[in-house]
Design a protein around this nucleic acid. Structure first.
Lengths: 329, 329
DNA sequence: CATTAGCACTTGAAAAATACAACTGCTAAA
DNA sequence: TTTAGCAGTTGTATTTTTCAAGTGCTAATG
């Protein structure tokens, strides 16, 4: 454990460094801590010994180490009170009742990205609460059809079907009727099973093109549960001075463009989690703050990505606010 | 006009510079042009006088000027023959008949982006060929409904409607029936007009919540004609050495993230067009090659964005191939 | 007249040298 | 325990040096 003054010192250094991105000297903290620079230097070297501070070179001021940030986040920082202005901006999104939930989430995360000038990520998909409430086929011509599925939570998905042999709409209709009969009211995560074991056998007897049709619907149902990824403004966070290097920017950009890395954002635990530097898959200078959300019809993860030198208190408060508002809807 | 040898010289310099990104010296071209470096220097200074070549400093080799690239593109370059391998990759997309047209376009442009390591942009929207073929409302609860519109070319759009007063599905149905009666078969660009002058008056007499319902549908129809933007891998082109500078990368990145700039990609003229350096809105070191496409149900622009030092011959050939394949579908 | 050899000259890039400001660590005194 | 004072360290910015890679020009050549 570190003492009162050391805690205060660490707090000052972290918060000052977050603001300025420059190593903090002992002299600059005299006023705040009401003691001489020499005293502060003594305390600093203790914190350095503990691995909470680092120097960029022998005679430089101190910066927080990864462990220092972690200590700050876990033990020192308090979530920041949101400003009225910020709340107002977010409320205009949450109050708009004709937005679909998934759009509300995306829009609110875009706002956070703007408020913090970091980068936001939303990983969302329809949850298993969704039950199929309508299955429909619209013919385009004799070979092409559109399959549409709607769930009771308002998720709509569609897919084109191409059937080699000319097919009458009545043939299709009869299949859709069968599917409707068996599938309506089924939670989407159970649809595949039902399709396989209840619908397929029946269709098999009736229609020749069963395979294509069956597959088309199978795909629509799969798509409904697809992870949706939305990344906002990578350039935002890349403006921070730690990324003032073409190669570093390119490396991070590629990660944003790479679905696999983005999928590692997915959060399984409840609560708001902070991943600092080596704790995340982006870069040692990057921090990720994320939280799972789970609500009627939609679930996923929202995350903010920025420099390790992130305004943790503000971001934590904002994410929490969004999570609560999403989940109470 | 420039003579035979000067043309050959300009061609060699442009193509060599595109490959290497280094100024081209007179000596390095001796073998190709079968004359001494002094002769080449003489020719070079003529081309420089004409504004087709530039030096990076007094004693450097030559690089093409913007005008030099333009001359190369307009008068020297011939579209490159595509390799069998490239064609094969693209054909697997075009032959997949269960892809919707808009997905085919996006996927094929992703492939081009990969083949060239530049960045591709697709600006697409459903064309006015689309006629409304089905309008439907699915109820979620007493206050919320999903409005769905399908066109005869297979475009599907949906929107959530929130209605303050509890509304029975039969009330809604009657409106949908009216809309269906008047709107089916109408080209989407005429729907707003019809909605305003034919449907609105009738609804006004029948239902109290007309405003909200009417607006919801109005919005769905508007959305169907919305410009869709798809940008692939900005990081691709930013790997080129001319962008080896954090600030330059950030500037260009922002343009990619800014819808307004992206919308300037839109091309009105037929054919394949090249915009070099100051001719485009991105950066003096950037070139944009784009072409309009227009096909049954979908229209828009496809573009490739890369360094001014772009493989114009290859990109032109690829874009042309895509355009032709889209339009013959 | 077009071409070329030869050479002086220019320049950027890389490496080395210099100067300086901003810190720290340590010692000894309060 | 705190602090004043000072020697010592290091990065950064600036200047200097060196060097290779080119060019432009002149005069000779076919």
């Amino acid at each position: 454990m570190i003492n009162q003054r050391q805690t205060e010192l660490l707090k000052l250094i972290v918060e000052d460094y977050i603001k300025t991105a420059r190593p903090i000297s002992s002299k600059s903290l005299c006023e705040n801590l009401k003691c001489s620079s020499a005293t502060i230097r003594n305390e600093m070297s203790i914190l350095e010994e503990l691995g909470l501070l680092e120097k960029t070179h022998t005679s430089s001021g101190r910066i927080p180490s990864e462990k220092g940030y972690r200590y700050y986040v876990d033990n020192i920082m308090k979530p920041k009170e949101l400003t009225g202005e910020d709340v107002l901006k977010l409320q205009t999104i949450f109050k708009n009742q004709s937005l679909m939930l998934s759009d509300t989430i995306i829009k609110s995360m875009e706002i956070i990205s703007e408020l913090t000038s970091y980068t936001s990520v939303v990983l969302g998909k329809s949850s298993k609460d969704n039950k199929v409430s309508k299955v429909e086929v619209v013919p385009l011509d004799e070979n092409n059809f559109i399959a549409i599925v709607v769930t009771d939570k308002g998720h709509v998905e569609h897919k084109k079907m191409f059937i080699k042999e000319k097919t009458s709409i009545s043939e299709i209709k009869s299949i859709v009727d069968i599917i409707n009969k068996h599938i309506i009211g089924t939670p989407i995560n159970e649809v595949s099973k039902k399709l396989e074991f209840e619908v397929k056998p029946i269709i098999g007897d009736e229609i020749k093109q069963k395979e294509v049709l069956y597959n088309a619907f199978y795909n629509v149902f799969t798509d409904i549960q697809r992870q949706n990824v939305k990344v906002t403004k990578p350039s935002n966070m890349l403006k921070e001075p730690e990324f003032d290097n073409a190669d570093k920017i390119r490396k991070i950009l590629e990660k944003f463009e790479n679905r696999e890395i983005i999928n590692t954002i997915k959060e399984e635990d409840d609560g708001i989690h902070v991943y600092i530097g080596s704790e995340n898959d982006f870069d040692d200078d990057v921090a990720v703050i994320k939280t799972k959300y789970e609500t009627d019809g939609e679930e996923g993860t929202i995350a903010l990505i920025g420099p390790k030198r992130m305004e943790y208190d503000k971001v934590t408060a904002l994410l929490n606010y969004i999570k609560e508002n999403i989940e109470k809807e």
